[in-house]
Nucleic acid binder design. Structure first.
Lengths: 240, 240
DNA sequence: AAAGATCTGTTGCAAATATAACAAAAGGTG
DNA sequence: CACCTTTTGTTATATTTGCAACAGATCTTT
């Protein structure tokens, strides 16, 4: 990790515009003015770090107190078990938060690792300063708490959605469950998935080659068509 | 559902002591005085409902605005798929909250149902009145928000723990993952589980009879001993 | 363009699982 | 106690998955 900038009253405003625009549209600061954002960043002791591909942003069992906001790039929240089987919990994209579970409840032992999927810049914030009233006069403070609640609720919701996928008993039904969610999100029967085959298999916790074979069967049966990461669901009577 | 009492300035203090004691130790009100609790309950438009066994407290796709607190009994958060396969997300015990995900983010469509596991009394509270500043003078208000954040973070944590169990590739490893978590929680190699066999299978999303057979194999191999819901992990070199 | 690395699809086989059917055990009720 | 219901364990079989190995495709690097 390479520390690229931090915020206090001296460095106020030293952040590139592309990053500010990400922060403005992030779920934590949505609706806040640029001035409010700078004020909050200083208040939250923010600093940013740059990571190469496949670098660990935090490890399982590490003590996390900062929430992370992806300013550019993307990362995986993942876990490796005793035998080295990787299980991919979530992919975190630009503009999204991660580590908020552990940052809000520092007593919880981290049970996952955060690994950069590409070159990635992360903004860290001390979330404890959000939940305890800050001494400086943050007009945006109560809104921030409200947004943090919203972020946590949505994260928990995403986790229950993921559980709904992987509790399906066959690889085909796991795939269809995930694909139909993605189609709903995209508002179209055609969509791109943010995973390659190995990552998708790790996300649905099935074997890659078995999943690849199942994808081919589904295509030959006319249930789906796919080309690399582009998936198209065909209309069939009862896919699920 | 049978409505048993609600709270406003008139009904102040009409709640049985056993229920007040549950509320006092609940994660939402922990540390609050009885007076503060009554004040908050009125502020949150609370009311309580009584449910028979196997009654639906809310259905999937229902719009949820209230968070629920189990005053007595217990319930399951579960989901049934197209073919009727039940998937048991979580068991919610006396003193625990449920529905907080949907109550905090009412735009999220409910993807699970809440079903009482036995005769159960639930206290409902309008959580939106927590996150927006209430007009009455609630001294405990900011503490309540802090507690709600904590509850959501812990719920998300529990969900990631559950994902860690069910992403294991074999029934044996799912069982061992769950059992070792329970042993850690109990602080002992012997512990009780809150599920019967069918419920445990639904929780780990495996077939009941296949799981039953696996439990027997594990016992015959000396990995565990069990009698009904009482499980004992044996010390072996490399159980996981 | 050539060489190397990575990703993807395919196949056969061993291992694990789902399913159904049944019997024994446990619990509840009159 | 007898009867009924629910829960649990057992078994056989068909289905599904994991695994390993390989070849073709795609992407990177020099």
């Amino acid at each position: 990790m390479k520390n690229i900038f931090s915020f206090n009253y001296k460095t106020f405003g030293k952040m590139p515009d592309v990053f500010i625009n990400v922060i403005k549209t992030s779920p934590l600061f949505i609706g806040a003015s640029e001035k409010e954002i700078y004020s909050m960043l200083a208040c939250l002791g923010s600093f940013a770090g740059k990571y190469e591909k496949n670098e660990a942003i935090f490890h399982a069992n590490e003590n996390i107190t900062n929430v992370g906001l992806v300013l550019s790039g993307s990362l995986y929240l993942e876990r490796e078990d005793y035998w080295g089987n990787r299980s991919l919990l979530l992919r975190v994209e630009k503009g999204e938060l991660f580590g908020e579970i552990y940052a809000c409840e520092p007593l919880l032992s981290t049970n996952i690792s955060a690994i950069s999927a590409e070159e990635t810049v992360v903004l860290f914030m001390d979330v404890q300063r959000i939940t305890t009233l800050c001494t400086s006069n943050c007009i945006y403070h109560s809104q921030l708490i409200h947004n943090l609640l919203s972020v946590l609720a949505k994260k928990a919701y995403m986790l229950t959605c993921k559980i709904n996928h992987i509790t399906k008993r066959t690889t085909r039904n796991k795939l269809l469950s995930y694909f139909s969610e993605q189609a709903l999100l995209a508002g179209s029967s055609e969509f791109m998935i943010p995973f390659n085959r190995q990552e998708l298999a790790d996300f649905l916790s099935v074997n890659r080659s078995a999943m690849s074979a199942e994808l081919s069967r589904m295509q030959s049966e006319g249930i789906i068509t796919f080309c690399k990461n582009h998936i198209k669901l065909q209309k069939v009577d009862n896919p699920l």
